[in-house]
Design a protein around this nucleic acid. Structure first.
Lengths: 163, 163
DNA sequence: CATTTTATGTCAGTCTTGTTGACATTCCAA
DNA sequence: TTGGAATGTCAACAAGACTGACATAAAATG
């Protein structure tokens, strides 16, 4: 750690670099959620509804418990959101045949339609950011994101990847 | 856009790639806030307090309006947070000499101490993620983040960079 | 110089979405 | 078969967003 080369290699770990990463995450997350937020507002939904729609779409037939472990909120909190989505017929619920305690969740046609609208808006911004930054930057972006996750979330993330 | 080479170049813009980016942001942000959240809980503060402490530390003497434009919340919302921080003597307030409507904000010694604690925890995780991913990945990470921000936030971000 | 308009910050009340606690139902194991 | 564990629901509460009304200070206008 004393010669010039290794010191140069570690320049990306300076306090200033870390601070930029921290502030970058903060500002970027605002951009990341801005477009869906505008759409959700029109329907009087919030980010919590978006997250539920997204992951029910990704894992159709999932039960409440599984969704909880992905979303990282309490089941009581998720329950309120699910209740309104079911009332408004964006999500349908099927009681498990094998285990009748479980409720399996699916998007209805209108649910799919709203989810599509939201993910299109969000993807559009992501695509533009990717395009500006280029393929190598995108690869690095995903590496750092993955390394920043809690181990359990990293597992959840990878499971979604392969399925 | 018809030959193999350009098709290959655009593989990083597939729906699957974009989806991974979206879910990556979601999971990574949870990791990003997890450590400070644990510390804040002990003092009965929340993320809003952390954000205020962070940017008052970064821009000592800033006024409420400037802080608002960085944080992207309403002044009423920020006000509640500032009030408790001032009550608890983590933040001190000095009425502007030139414009006596303005309140200039500073961290007190205890404010600096808590901010240090929070930023140390957050930087630690960021450093570990950077270290795992390596310098090239970090450069890409920051490029994508910056491209994802709203233009106004990009400006705010860059201002913090040079100062 | 007086008065109106604009800007900064505060107080009060509401809504979303987190939280914990109590509970009903179902399954499984002793 | 009975007691415990798991799944999900209902109720009450807290943090932190929001809008609206307001006080004070500065700036602009007559």
């Amino acid at each position: 750690m004393q010669n010039d080369t290794s010191r140069e290699n570690l320049l990306f770990l300076t306090d200033e670099q870390l601070r930029q990463g921290i502030e970058g995450m903060f500002f970027a997350y605002r951009g990341f959620t801005a477009d869906p937020d505008r759409i959700l507002e029109k329907y009087n939904y919030g980010r919590a509804h978006h997250r539920a729609l997204h992951f029910i779409n990704r894992v159709p037939g999932t039960n409440v418990n599984n969704l909880l472990s992905i979303l990282g909120v309490t089941k009581q909190s998720l329950n309120r959101v699910l209740r309104t989505l079911i009332e408004h017929e964006l999500v349908s619920l099927r009681i498990g045949t094998k285990d009748r305690r479980e409720r399996h969740l699916y998007l209805t046609e209108s649910g799919k339609s709203l989810e599509k609208q939201l993910s299109t808006a969000q993807s559009h911004r992501m695509r533009e950011a990717y395009r500006q930054a280029g393929p190598d930057a995108v690869a690095g972006f995903k590496q750092v994101l993955e390394a920043m996750m809690d181990p359990k979330l990293q597992v959840a993330y990878k499971k979604l990847r392969v399925s």
